[in-house]
Design a protein around this nucleic acid. Structure first.
Lengths: 266, 266
DNA sequence: AACTCACTGATTGCATGCAAAAGACCGTTG
DNA sequence: CAACGGTCTTTTGCATGCAATCAGTGAGTT
């Protein structure tokens, strides 16, 4: 693999990122989320580099980054090992995100100077609500739009907290796919149940904004924590139905404990 | 710098870590904490590698790690830039640690199966208390011992939470020196004020253990959050006295907001 | 004078090859 | 037969050199 003036990009396939490392990060994360590796499996760099068509240095950098995101464990001179997650880990991760986003909501309520600063968040929450109300039959398109707007809401909430430290912590907490705000929503679930869920969430968004606008930090915090628990309910439903849908992001990294544990919190 | 059979170690100087990368991480972190770089400064890899006597690859890996810890910012093809922190950032970081450790304490209260699991934490808290009571005149040695035991207490608390996710989050939150449990305690402050502070903390430790033992999760959480705020008070005191003591870990990375400060950090 | 653009010096990104550990295998020895 | 030790193999760690890219500079054009 010599250096063959691949400077800009072969616009053909998928040249999404500019650097080899960035490309490797994207591919690898995708592979991990798709369950391409078994939990506990040791990753050998040379064959993987060949497969991804990058050299070992950028691959190593990419692995290091994914280890930091929580997908891999670093063994001092023995490479990287794929992490395994129990359902308790997932519950804890969701609860952790709720804790952090709740703190963000509280800070938002305390820190905004003028009510107009809330407009973006308010706009997003209305947009979500009208999207859901207007599409009682969900399509793929509205589903994706919802995911998008939902992400914008959560990111806007973090902006309002004006805390870099909190932002960092939330980013890290959400770096595992099953902890992110849109976890456990998968295409195959496009159903009326899902529509109800979206409506509930849309309502929660509006109430959160309302609490923030009234400087009711405690209410904003509690609502936001509750909002995060929706993901927990989704996971519980999925587990009750039988097993995790195999196409769900990160499902293959989850090791089901023998008993689906009856909900403790909530 | 060729490969000169430096296989094992020149036991002379300081061979602390086995790999070049690990050595570079240690040296770099030390340099950063000591304020060797100015906030906002761009780090040039080649001269730094020469100075640290490592090659550019391990240096790059080390820089990446410190970026993950929060010391540096990554610019896509422009290297690493030293982060700057405001006092608000520090306050937020301390509050964040309190939030997370509080959650750990709450989980600890909920999750222990048998009271004997608390013995290590209990033992540590007693050990700290008797250390402080027995040494109304603090020496360097008792100071260091306190720091040590304090770290053990905090780590024991995290163990009891039985949450890998929380552990990860706390680790990340504490990776910046001014957010860690022993932040803003510096040698020059060995004084009777410090003794009082230690006593208060030792008492808090005992009360936290007591709350956990009684399964009073809420009390454990609130106590732990309050315990973290001691660090905030320390910082406030230090700021009130004039400026940050220049030998304090990470002080040079902190940019005092409104108050005047002779800028040259060197 | 301001703007563009090509050039240049500085700096990071990356490929390759080699060395050092860690693990596997096997023969020897108690 | 188990345990130990040596050699071989596999795999990661690292050094070096080159390519690509970025920031700064100066010439040319409007």
């Amino acid at each position: 693999m010599q250096r063959i003036k691949q400077t800009s990009k072969t616009p053909g396939v998928k040249s999404k990122a500019s650097s080899q490392t960035a490309r490797a990060v994207l591919s690898l994360r995708e592979m991990l989320v798709q369950g391409r590796f078994r939990p506990g499996e040791r990753i050998r760099e040379v064959p993987l580099a060949a497969e991804l068509k990058v050299s070992r240095i950028p691959l190593h950098l990419a692995l290091e980054r994914l280890a930091h995101e929580g997908f891999l464990e670093i063994r001092p001179t023995r490479g990287f090992v794929v992490q395994r997650f129990s359902t308790e880990d997932i519950y804890d991760a969701i609860e952790l995100r709720g804790l952090l986003e709740g703190a963000a909501a509280k800070l938002a309520a305390q820190r905004f100077k003028h009510i107009s600063e809330l407009s973006p968040l308010q706009a997003t929450s209305y947009e979500i609500l009208s999207l859901v109300r207007g599409h009682k039959k969900l399509t793929m398109e509205t589903f994706n739009l919802y995911i998008d707007l939902n992400a914008r809401f959560h990111s806007g909430l973090i902006d309002l907290s004006r805390s870099r430290m909190l932002r960092r912590a939330i980013q890290q907490a959400c770096s595992l796919p099953f902890a992110s705000p849109s976890a456990f929503l998968k295409r195959q679930y496009v159903s009326s149940d899902l529509w109800e869920l979206f409506l509930i969430c849309a309502d929660q968004h509006c109430e959160i904004v309302d609490a923030i606008a009234n400087r009711d930090g405690m209410r904003a915090e509690l609502l936001t924590r509750e909002h995060a628990r929706v993901a927990r309910r989704n996971l519980e439903d999925a587990l009750r139905n039988s097993e995790l849908p195999p196409d769900m992001a990160g499902a293959k990294l989850i090791e089901l404990s023998s008993s689906v544990r009856p909900s403790t919190a909530r």
